[in-house]
């Protein structure tokens, strides 16, 4: 156990040299690299924080935009809802108007058809009544309806008072003593002569009589003297019947309309 002073000195020098060498080749490079890595990590950390802040900012921005979009969507939906409601009401109104127009048109058509039907029914009914009356009268008195009608007609003319008769006679001058007899059926020779004789007797022999058929009179006969008319026919009775029939038909149609209207609207 002794110290060799040369070795002692050499080892001191060796150690100092080793300190320098390791500082140069080991500590400094490693520490520099570690510091550099630390700096990089710090930079990356800073960058990550920046990115995180950006992400948070963008997230907040996105959230705000989303809320705005939702709000805008709700507004648009509300506006669209209002427009749809308005459009619906408008079209409903238009549809109602169209329905009303169609209904009115339908009523007009129905009224026309009803009038046409009534007219047709009236004619047929009159015919039927005429035939029926003729048959009944024939069966009852053994005289045909034509003759009875003419008799009634001539009887009515005969019952005209003097004042009215003179008024009719005075009118003959304006028609050059021409009168017109219209009948619903053709008069036979006998009836023609009968009417002619009666009128010559009633108005004067100079009177010229024109005969004409007019089916609308319905079992009747008329005398026209310058706008003055003396008539007897079933038309009045038929008109009363028609009025009654039309009233009944109107009631029937009204009831039908009332039951049909709710289902159509």
């Amino acid at each position: 156990m002794s110290i060799d002073w040369f070795t002692f000195t050499a080892q001191i020098l060796n150690f100092l040299v080793l300190v320098w060498l390791l500082t140069h080749f080991l500590y400094n490079p490693i520490i520099n690299v570690m510091n550099e890595r630390e700096k990089q990590i710090a930079q990356e950390h800073e960058k990550a924080i920046t990115f995180q802040q950006q992400a948070e900012s963008e997230s907040a921005n996105f959230k705000q935009k989303t809320e705005e979009l939702v709000h805008a969507k709700e507004e648009l939906l509300a506006v669209a809802g209002k427009e749809i409601q308005s459009w619906r009401e408008e079209h409903l109104e238009r549809a109602r108007t169209e329905v009303d127009v169609a209904k009115a048109e339908w009523y007009r058509t129905l009224t026309r058809e009803r009038q046409s039907f009534i007219r047709e029914a009236r004619l047929r009914m009159a015919d039927h009544i005429q035939h029926m009356s003729r048959r009944v009268l024939t069966e009852l008195s053994n005289a045909d309806l034509q003759e009875l009608t003419i008799n009634v007609f001539l009887n009515e003319i005969g019952q005209i008072d003097e004042q009215q008769k003179s008024r009719i006679v005075s009118l003959l001058d304006s028609t050059q003593h021409r009168v017109l007899v219209e009948s619903a059926f053709p008069l036979n020779q006998k009836d023609l002569e009968k009417v002619r004789v009666f009128l010559h007797d009633f108005l004067g022999s100079e009177v010229e009589i024109d005969f004409r058929e007019k089916h609308e009179l319905i079992c009747g006969i008329e005398l026209h003297v310058a706008g003055y008319k003396i008539a007897w026919n079933v038309q009045e009775a038929l008109e009363e019947l028609e009025e009654e029939f039309v009233r009944s038909l109107n009631e029937a149609i009204t009831v039908e309309s009332e039951t049909d209207v709710p289902s159509t609207s």
Binding site: M1, I3, T7, A10, Q11, I12, N14, F15
Partner: peptide, 15 residues
């Protein structure tokens, strides 16, 4: 080992 020499350990201690 150099550390088994007293010269070395003394040199290190001196340092």
């Amino acid at each position: 080992a150099p550390t088994s020499s007293l010269s070395t350990t003394a040199a290190l201690a001196m340092c």
